[in-house]
Design a protein around this nucleic acid. Structure first.
Lengths: 137, 137
DNA sequence: TTTAAATACTACTTTAAGGTAGAAATTAAA
DNA sequence: TTTAATTTCTACCTTAAAGTAGTATTTAAA
């Protein structure tokens, strides 16, 4: 019942870059140190973020990363979906294949409200809205 | 962002047994077929449920399983805790070690309400209260 | 007393996530 | 033009969850 490390890292990376857009480019070495994410794992995630078009990369000396689009257009839900974190989120919480309103699973009604609230929260929270300060592990 | 298979199975197994307490004993072969859980995996989980004192087992021919205590005293939260599903649930959703009210993580405030709601729901939902019908995969 | 039906135990295999290593490719500075 | 700082690619290693296999143990029925 928690997010994958990859998703947690991705959210923290994007948030940090969004909050420091003035600095123009961020590089992997610094991101790794500041966010306390293993360098090699971070670069793997950065490549994902580039491929998924959250991030633009500039290669070579003096290169680095920056947001590919405005922070206000990137929600936490977008990030989680890109990393397939919520693929089964709308399905039965107990994994029942046959769970539907006619034949409800045993947590069907109870789970409905929390699920809606979580999804709304992820959808409404954009990188722009984020106001926290802590980006470390 | 979902429960482990083991937890899902455990909830469904205990719910099914609770709803069929009149039948006295349930055996692994039938549970496996009705709940569509691999037999060998189910027996492993049953042993856990016995050790964690949710279930009493009677060994030997005509043996089987039954609840170790009243369905009204077993909440979904109890089950999830027994399988360590929520060990990090009260911690930072992004895994930040230094997240606290003074130095909030970027989802700190947003996550507070959904988290509370989920935990309350799990705590309030006992095997007795469950009214669903579907126990299959 | 033998047998069959049941749980319990030990150990293994499979799969996916998390993480690491090394080298290639790119590009601006020196 | 060379070098150093950067991203990218390919491949591998590690760990934990999920699932499987075989056998031992227990106990009531036959």
């Amino acid at each position: 019942m928690q997010l994958s490390n990859t998703s947690k890292y991705a959210i923290r990376i994007l948030s940090y870059i969004a909050k420091n857009e003035d600095k123009k480019l961020q590089n992997a070495k610094e991101l790794s140190e500041i966010l306390e994410i293993p360098y090699k794992f971070l670069t793997k995630i950065m490549t994902d973020l580039v491929n998924k078009e959250f991030i633009l990369s500039i290669r070579g000396r003096e290169g680095g990363y920056k947001l590919a689009r405005s922070a206000s257009t990137i929600s936490v839900l977008d990030i989680l979906n890109a990393f397939n974190e919520l693929t089964h989120f709308s399905e039965c919480i107990l994994g029942s294949q046959t769970c539907d309103p006619q034949k409800k699973c045993i947590l069907h009604d109870q789970w409905a409200k929390p699920r809606t609230l979580i999804k709304q929260m992820f959808a409404e929270t954009t990188l722009e809205k984020i106001e926290g300060e802590d980006f470390k592990t």
